[in-house]
Amino acid sequence: MPRAGGPPLIEFKGVSKVFGSGPAAVPALNAVDLSIDRGEFVAIMGPSGSGKSTAMNILGCLDAPTSGTYRFMGVDVGRLNRHQRTLLRRRYLGFVFQGFNLLARTSAVENVELPLVYRGTPTTARRRLAREVLARVGLEGREDHTPGELSGGQQQRVAIARAIVTDPAVLLADEPTGNLDSRMSLEIMNLLGRLNREQGITVVMVTHEPDMAAHARRIIRFVDGRIDSDASSERAA
């Protein structure tokens, strides 16, 4: 349900991505059209090699399309240089990874502060913000624990806190429950759902587990570098 006026938050127009060149060229995405609006909770599914990770990297401005245009908030990302893409990423995007990707031997609160460090937020303000966000993901009292002292689910919650501490427009989650058991997975999905509903954060999540995808309100399936289906999830329907 596109909001009246303004462009969609995320818009792919004929986006293709080819790795390598010449006879060794491997197409990963093939003329994909896609648009995601503010406030959506989207799950991207598909077998490995279907192009969903490539799509995610382009969405996250970590990679640029070979052809076609990707507009983020109306801005053609393909025209930005590496520096500008980094600036865009750190202002509007939050990342959650399958392997958590927290800095080892670094306390939860320091991990959450990290994006603010690069933004130049003053120390006291960023410490306060980091603690607030950790409380929001249910990790009150665990601020000074290092990743090694936290369970997988708790580590992923730290990672989510780190992703949302900058108040991003979009939260990109790449297999966020891939390393977690079903109970912890459910916790994480509930957290993502809550952030989406209560704080209006747009969530785009890659997963291969239908149970997890069912938490989203829209499910996009990739097959062979193309979008195979794009529908509202049964649960939301």
Binding site: G60, L62, R82, H83, T86, L87, R89, R90, R91, F95, N101, L102, L103, A104, L114, P115, Y118, R119, R162, A163, T166
Partner: peptide
């Protein structure tokens, strides 16, 4: 390398 990747992904500029 992985740590550097994390830093770059969450918004560290090259010069940082």
């Amino acid at each position: 390398t992985r740590e550097i990747g994390i830093r770059l992904a969450i918004g560290a500029l090259e010069e940082q």
